[in-house]
């Protein structure tokens, strides 16, 4: 799946989302190319998670469309979107707590039609990559928060997605864990050719990891472009630090 998808871009065009009349996303457009890492940043409540939910079909669109290589995926169920090659992690970790770590990772591959044996091999490889091999037979619900985050990312990768959308992947990790994660994530576009969209509040991690940044505030795009350019953008500074800081 990764091969054929890798030539196509994920494109959200003019996406709007409403909750009971409240516009959570307003005409947001974002493109994620294969082998590219894009950071999606913005203050709390700016619509970052909502955009991931909209792309992955968890919330319906009030306007706009989402496509992969021109094929519309908006309107499809989350399951069908996953089968099109988009996988994700969640802001609040959603593991299968009564299953073992290795079963969690396998489940993603199994959902994509991989055989039980191949799924086990793939899961073991990923667990080794994420330094989780020793915890393979532990129940996922008993892991530390940082380990849960890593299992969730490994699980998403087991499906060999073309695009991976990570919602605060480093939340709850200590500095060393965060550094290891950064290294793993930075290698993914090269080794797997996948496009990575990352939400995180750790600006150090975002700046080091991302090719491009997309900044949301109050459900609207206020800036996008290369990390250095975006960081100096007055609208971004104002959104994060308030108008006084922007004028200083």
């Amino acid at each position: 799946m990764g091969q054929s998808m890798s030539e196509k871009s994920l494109n959200a065009a003019g996406v709007s989302v409403e909750f009971s009349g409240l516009r959570a996303l307003d005409n947001v457009s974002l493109t994620l190319s294969p082998a590219e890492i894009v950071g999606l940043i913005g203050p709390n409540g700016s619509g970052k998670t909502t955009l991931i939910n909209a792309i992955t079909g968890q919330v319906p669109l009030a306007g706009g469309r989402v496509t992969i290589g021109g094929d519309q995926i908006s309107g499809l169920s989350p399951r069908r979107i996953a089968l099109k090659g988009i996988n994700r992690s969640f802001q609040i970790v959603r593991l299968f707590n009564n299953m073992t770590v290795v079963e969690n990772v396998e489940s993603s591959a199994l959902a994509h039609g991989v055989s039980l044996r191949q799924a086990r091999e793939k899961a073991n490889t990923l667990l080794a990559e994420f330094s989780l091999s020793e915890k393979a037979e532990d129940l996922a619900g008993n892991l530390s928060y940082g380990d849960k985050r890593r299992v969730e990312i490994a699980r998403a990768l087991a499906a060999d997605p073309a695009f991976l959308l990570l919602d605060e992947p480093a939340a709850g990790m200590n500095e060393a864990e965060s550094e290891t994660l950064l290294h793993i994530l930075s290698e993914l576009p090269r080794t797997r050719g996948l496009g990575l969209l990352i939400i995180d509040h750790d600006m150090g991690l975002i700046m080091r990891l991302c090719n491009r940044l997309h900044v949301l505030a109050s459900g609207r795009t206020i800036a996008e472009g290369k990390a250095d350019e975006v960081r100096k953008n007055p609208a971004v500074i104002e959104a994060y630090l308030g108008s006084e800081a922007a004028n200083a």
């Binding site: 989350p78 089968l83 996988n87 993603s108 994509h112």
Partner: peptide, 11 residues
Amino acid sequence: DDETAAAALGA
């Protein structure tokens, strides 16, 4: 264990 996450994986 988690219906939303399972559907998001393609189940």
